[in-house]
Amino acid sequence: MKMYKPATLQETLSLLTELPAKKLLLAGGSDINILIKQDKITDENIIYINHLPELHGIDMCCTKLVIGAATTISEISHSGVIRQYCPFLADSLHDFASPLIAGFATLAGNIANSSPTADTVPLLLVLDARLVLKSLTTTRMLPLTEFYTGYKQTRLQDDELIIAVEIPLQYACRYKPQYIKIGSRTALTIAKAALAFVKYDNKFRIAAGSLNEYPRRLYSVEEYLSLHPDDYNDNDLLNALKKDITPITDFRSDKEYRLQVCFNYLQKFLKSTNSS
């Protein structure tokens, strides 16, 4: 294993282009450093990026919120700008890990680690968040909905890094999206199931975590509800949900519970939006 600490973003992008595989970016390290300690990462070239100023900061830019890739979970949950424009995002991270982790775990680290349980992702999916990806020669925007392609598989190229996450403020963001994380306790818990939900202009945006190989939108449920916003029936809703999720049984929970708890919360969210 060789470690690099490039002085600038430009140098980082050159390293990403020049170094042979296997290479790995290191931000907060709350996922990777455990693998290093357990000798599961041994021969990679590791590029440390957390000190790069271009990856930090939370800004309002016209109609979007731009969050630097290396912004920490605590910075997001305490940020005045986020509390003003996206308070539900700040609240949704209240039970992320513990303060000892949230103080250095980063947003892009959570997204790029590509865990099915990543807590920041379901809500960002319903908010239509986009990733800003940069390589030495290109800068491109990728909707978060298109980022994951399979278990721990993404469209991030070998020579790219995430430099920021953008949240458009004119759509879903205005309609109080909700996020629920089901764990065995509040602190230091990994979600057994998680659901993000928002309704606006009779459209629904719903995404789930821990219920598929990666966090994803529930398109069948969204479509069914957009056709039956006020006259949905539980049976059809459940059938649509079954098309969208593939819950498994593992040491955290079992598939029957995961399906049921997801369905219960879906109904609860629907009732809350119908009554308001």
Partner: peptide
């Protein structure tokens, strides 16, 4: 800030 020293590497 309070952090876990078991998850911090020298370079950090």
């Amino acid at each position: 800030k309070a952090v876990c020293s078991c998850l911090m590497l020298a370079c950090q």
